[in-house]
Design a protein around this nucleic acid. Structure first.
Lengths: 138, 138, 138, 138
DNA sequence: GTGGTCTAGACCACC
DNA sequence: GTGGTCTAGACCACG
């Protein structure tokens, strides 16, 4: 599995955006190392079952962000990103999503207890059971 | 301040959606009680500085969801919603946002510890530590 | 003449780039004031005799630069740009071109005198005769 | 240092073009005298860390312009160029670049004064003030 | 082979 | 009406 990216063609979220988010994640988390040659736009388009235009847009957007570097006739590479920037990207994305969740919670007047419980449950679900699954709320 | 809703005209999020989310929150959290008469479409449009078409769409969408009821010539009211539905709405929205946050975290390979710490910080920020956790519902 | 932009279809320079450069110039020089509504992408495409895709790209690139602001269903506007940024854009573009000219001159070993004379001639050509066209070289 | 040419692999400008411009400059300015034997394609490619195809193209383009001559099995030489042509090449390139700079200046509505000052500064920077302007030709 | 540009046309979302 | 996305396919430039 060359590039582990999945797109939901029926999602309201634009394909190009789904791909960008995932590719960005692979890069800033270091799963795609600096200098890695990405699949050609045509290859990627075939893999993900979409138009080359869509992939081109993805690559170009990420190049504009400084995460990719592309050379005509050669291919598209993962750019050199400072460790600092890399960390920035990583945490920024997660923080944003977490803030959004709390906004929603406040909007429907979730109490601290309700939110705490929901988060505890969810973290257990996504990062299953440490050896000693101690509750550390309050 | 009749209806506490704010729209950001320069946000990429469509106006109608910003308004819907907030209005839905006011209803399912009980801040707008059943039977409450909402401002007329024109009034609302003026208040929020947007087109009547936009408000019309909001009212209609929420009516389709069963949260509003329109009486010809009289106005638009908050519909009767079962306590059960109310709770469903509330938690569903928050759960969705929380799931999204965890997806993002996984994508950039946040560890359980990183996520736990971020959540702890954020809950402290949004629900400032009360020495003895009091319910602030309703 | 709504928007004074010209494209040379036979130039090796991509159309989208020709348009971007000119539109950017109109904005940063203040000829298109902040808040101005630009022609719709379809209108512009017809005017300039190119595809809507090409115009869309132009508008989007300039939006990414912060020079335009677009709202779906409404149109594309000249964004608020700080006077500072505006000046930055203006001089940067010219400086770049001037530097390029001097690089070329150095490359073919133009002497200072040759260059000085060429510049004097050219400035006279582009900014014709002040009342007392005094030579101020040396 | 056999041939003083530098290529920026990460520049948007195609390698072949970077090389052509510099090589052309070396020839028309007389830094590479008529009859000089250029490095072989393979050697040049190794030196500049690029493909032989790229160098092949460069040599061929310049041969088409009449600046180089290739002798089967012998190598590539700097061709005989009339003094007149030489001068033509030299000034043409610089004039073009200068025109481009003025176009940019006009586009952002630089005043004559702004342009004059920028040029004065830049010439001072590239041709640092000699008390008595000496020719540094050849 | 690679990426870069452009077309014509379609469908959707928004106002 | 507006902009936003996507397609299928073409042609060019680069290595």
């Amino acid at each position: 599995m060359p590039i582990p990216i999945k797109v939901a063609a029926d999602s309201p979220e634009p394909m190009y955006h789904q791909i960008e988010v995932q590719l960005r994640g692979l890069i800033v988390s270091g799963q795609l190392a600096e200098g890695t040659l990405l699949p050609s736009i045509r290859e990627m388009a075939t893999d993900l079952n979409c138009s080359v235009i869509t992939i081109r847009r993805v690559y170009q957007d990420l190049e504009n962000e400084g995460l990719l570097r592309t050379r005509q006739g050669t291919g598209t590479f993962v750019a050199a990103v400072s460790v600092q920037d890399r960390q920035g990207y990583r945490t920024e994305a997660v923080k944003e999503a977490v803030q959004a969740a709390f906004e929603t919670a406040k909007r429907v007047q979730f109490t601290r207890e309700e939110m705490q419980q929901l988060l505890d449950e969810t973290i257990e679900e996504w990062y299953p059971a440490a050896a000693n699954p101690e509750k550390e709320d309050l």
